[in-house]
Design a protein around this nucleic acid. Structure first.
Lengths: 353, 353
DNA sequence: GTGTAGCGTGAAAGCGGTTTCTCGGCGGGG
DNA sequence: CCCCGCCGAGAAACCGCTTTCACGCTACAC
C-alpha cells in the first residue's frame, strides 16, 4: 500500500518464514493442500505469527470475483429501500458477500452511468432504476449482468426481476373503500416519473373502469409527510370522501393537516396509506394501508442474484402481492353516496386476491 | 474474469490497436501523458472504439487504494443509521468514493471481526461499535486506521470521533419537563448495553442530581414502537407524570398504548421522544423531542474520514448537540406536584445550552 | 535394473493495471 | 562538428495472490 500506515504482510513473507514457496502458502490457506501435514503446520504457524491475512484485492484480481454486490437505488433515504437494503445486506452477509450502496439521486441519466460504473467493481447488481427508459436499460443489460431488477417485471426485458404489485395493492385499498360506500376518491400522487407511482395510477384506472360509477381525482404531491400535509387543501377542494396516499408518510402528513383544519378522519374523510411502515399502526387513527413485504423482497433478491452469479438460469420472475391492512383511518363516507347506487356495500366485482 | 459472460477489454488490447505500449495507454487514460497529441488521440480513439474502461480491481491493486470506504453499524435497519448512511454515502459519492455497508447484527464479538475484515477491503472506516469494550477497540485501532469513530468520543482513544451528546439531549428534555412542573419521571430504556442508552441514563442521573427533588424510574424497553407499546403498563405503575422514551419510535408506541388505555397525552401524562424523525411532527399529539442532526453528522463523518485518508492530522473531535423541539406531547403535570416544591416553574439551574 | 506412474512442491505465468527505468533520437550550445 | 541533455515512449518490474505446469523424487511393476 502506498501509505505506510500499516504495511500489510504478504504471502511471500509467510512463505519465506515457513521456508516454502508462496504457492504452498496459498494452497494451505485455501485448504487445497495435499502434502505433508507438518509442512501445512509450519505454514499455518508462520501465518499466525505474522498475523497474515490475504489481501482481498489481490485475491479478487486473481480469482476474478470480489464477493461484493451492489445495490443501486434512486434514493437511499427512502424508507422503502432501507428496508430492502437491510434484509439484502443481511442475507448477502450470510453467504459471505458484502454490499455496496449507490444512490443515483433520482437522476435518470445518473442511474445509467452509476449502474454501469458500480457494476464494474463487483460481482453482481441489484438494480432499482424506476426512471430509466426501457430501451436504455435493455441496452445496458449485457454490461450489467448478472443483474436483478427491482420493479421492472412488467416489461419484457431479458433479465430476472422481482417486483411489488403496486397496482393490485392500490386496487385492494380502493375496493375496500368502495365496499365501505365511497364513490369519490382522491389520489395523492408520488413522484410523477417513477414507475411505482405510475403503477398505482394504472391500478386505480383499472379499478375505476371495473367499478363503473366512481370518480378519482389526481393530485400532485410527492413522497414525504410534508407533501401530504401540503396537499390537504387540494384534497378537500375535490370533495372526495376517501383519499389514497402515495405512501404512509404522505398519508400521515395529510391526516395531520386535515386534523389541523378540523376535519376528522375517518368520520369526515377516509385516508389510506401504502407500505405499512411499522409506525403507522401506532398513530391515531391507526392507518389503513397495504403492507408491502420489503424485507422478504430483499432476501429474495439476494437469493436470486446469488443463484444467478453461480451461473444458474434465472427462475421465473416473482411479484409480491401487498396485503390489505384495515385499520381505523377508513370508514363509511359521511353521507350516503349519491342516488345512483345500485349494489350498495357489495365489494367491487371479483378479482380480489 | 472467470465467467465468460462479458470478457472485459484490457489495456493491452487498446495498446495493440493504438499501436502503442500499455504504459502509454495508462498515461493517456490518467492524464499523465506529455507526448505527441496525435498519439494521445489515437489512444483515446482506440479506447473509445473498444469501449475500454480500466478494471477498478487492477487499478486498486496497483495503486493501493480502492476508493471505497466502509460503514460498520450494529443494525442497518435502525433509522438513525439510515439517516447517517444516506448523507455519508452522498458526501462520499461527491468525492468519487463508494460506501460498503456492514451490519454486525448487534453482536459485540462480531463487531470486532467484522470491522477488521471489512476494513481490509477498503481505504477507510466509519465505525459505529457501541457494544465493543474500550480495550478491544483500542487494540484494533492500528489495524482499522484510518478510522472515524461514531459515538466513542468520551473515552480516551487515539482515533478521531464524532458523536452526539445524548446526555445533554436528554437533559434538555428533562429540564423542559421540570420547568413545566414535573418532578416524577420515567425513562423507557433502549437496548441496555448500548452506549447511546447509557449516555442517556448518565444524563438523567446528572440532571436528577442537579435538580434535587426529582425521582426518575427506569423501565427496560427497547428501541421499537412495539417496545414502547409494551412498556405503557409499567410506566403507569410508577405514577410518573412525565416519561422520556429512548427514541421517537418508542415514544410513539407508548403514546398509542396510553391512548388505548384511556390516558390522555399530555393532559394526564407528558411524553417526550428522542431523534426527531420526520414523521413525529405530523402525528397527534405532535411529539416533543430533541432533534439530532444525523444528516450533518454523516456528512461531517465523511469530511473527516476523507481528510484522514489524505494523511491530514485528525482535527479535534466534534460533538453534535441535540436541540429541543417543544411540541404538543408535553405539558404541565395533571395535579400540582406534591408539597415540597420550592422553586415552582423555574427551569432547572443554569447549564441549558 | 530400468521404465513409469504418482506424489509433493516450487517456478513461473497469469490477473490488469501503474510506474520506474532505460534507451534512442533530436536539438542546441560550445 | 561533436557532445550533452532532454524528451517521448517502450520494456520491464511490481502490486499480492492463484494456478498451471514442470520437475525431482520415491515406489512399484516388469
Amino acid at each position: 500500500m502506498r501509505n505506510g500506515r500499516q504495511r500489510a504482510v504478504t504471502i511471500a513473507e509467510v512463505a519465506r518464514r515457513a521456508e516454502v514457496s508462496p504457492a504452498t502458502v496459498s494452497r494451505v490457506m485455501n485448504g487445497r493442500f495435499a502434502g505433508a501435514p507438518e509442512v501445512a503446520d509450519r505454514v499455518r504457524r508462520a501465518a499466525e505469527e505474522l498475523h497474515y491475512s490475504p489481501s482481498p484485492l489481490a485475491r479478487s484480481l486473481a480469482l476474478g470475483e470480489t464477493r461484493t454486490v451492489a445495490f443501486v437505488v434512486p434514493d437511499i433515504a427512502n424508507p422503502t429501500f432501507q428496508a430492502m437494503l437491510s434484509s439484502l445486506s443481511k442475507s448477502a452477509a450470510a453467504d459471505g458477500y458484502r454490499v455496496l450502496v449507490a444512490d443515483s439521486a433520482e437522476d435518470p441519466e445518473e442511474e445509467a452511468v452509476l449502474a454501469v460504473e458500480t457494476r464494474r467493481g463487483c460481482d453482481g447488481l441489484v438494480l432499482c432504476a424506476p426512471r430509466m427508459p426501457d430501451e436504455r436499460l435493455r441496452a445496458l443489460l449485457p454490461v450489467l449482468r448478472p443483474v436483478l431488477l427491482i420493479n421492472r417485471g412488467s416489461t419484457r426485458l431479458d433479465a430476472p426481476s422481482i417486483s411489488v404489485d403496486y397496482g393490485v395493492g392500490i386496487q385492494q385499498l380502493a375496493e375496500h373503500l368502495h365496499g365501505l360506500g365511497h364513490r369519490h376518491f382522491a389520489y395523492l400522487e408520488g413522484p410523477a416519473p417513477s414507475t411505482s407511482n405510475r403503477s398505482r395510477v394504472e391500478g386505480l384506472r383499472s379499478f375505476a373502469e371495473r367499478a363503473g360509477n366512481v370518480r378519482v381525482d389526481h393530485i400532485a404531491a410527492g413522497s414525504s409527510s410534508s407533501d401530504g400535509y401540503a396537499g390537504a387543501g387540494r384534497v378537500r377542494e375535490t370533495g372526495a370522501t376517501a383519499v389514497l396516499a402515495y405512501n404512509d408518510l404522505v398519508a400521515v402528513g395529510l391526516m395531520s393537516a386535515l386534523t389541523d383544519q378540523g376535519v376528522t378522519v375517518p368520520a369526515d374523510i377516509s385516508v389510506a396509506g401504502f407500505d405499512d411502515i411499522p409506525m403507522v399502526s401506532y398513530i391515531a387513527p391507526r392507518l389503513t394501508t397495504v403492507s408491502v413485504p420489503y424485507g422478504p423482497l430483499g432476501a429474495e433478491a439476494w437469493k436470486r442474484l446469488h443463484a444467478l452469479m453461480r451461473g444458474e438460469v434465472p427462475s421465473h420472475n416473482v411479484i409480491f402481492q401487498p396485503r390489505l391492512q384495515r385499520r381505523e383511518s377508513t370508514g363509511p363516507p359521511p353521507v350516503p353516496p349519491s342516488a345512483d347506487r345500485t349494489g350498495p356495500a357489495a365489494a367491487g366485482p371479483g378479482r380480489r386476491r
